[in-house]
Amino acid sequence: MAFPLKRSTKRRMGLFAVVIVTTAGARAAEQTVEQKDKTFVVNGAKVATLKVKVGDVISFKNMDPYFHNVFSLSDVKLFDLGSFPQGQSRPVTFDKAGKVEVECAIHPQMKLTVEVGK
């Protein structure tokens, strides 16, 4: 950085720390990933990586007062959920094992890696 960071900035960067959430259980699980302040959030914390099992469903819910998109161009799971407003959610079933890069086509700063395990 060219200039010293303020303490508040450091705190913010702390919140941006990578959080890995693992979904346990043999049966297909469903969980919600929120889109909030142009980040992907699970249980109030920003996530950069999320581990799920084959067959699990992630429901992407827009919490921001503007539209979001969710898409992936990954070979493992190709999808485009279009754009949807605050309060709406859209589900995606991760039916193949592998790594899925999830993004928002409107806001390029939003990135999430979903690691789909067997």
Binding site: M1, A2, F3, P4, L5, K6, T9, P65, Y66, F67, P85, Q86
Partner: peptide, 17 residues
Amino acid sequence: QSPQTISKKKFQFPNQI
């Protein structure tokens, strides 16, 4: 989307580059 009240603080210029 219905607009919401936005705090002026959200527009404060950053003091680091």
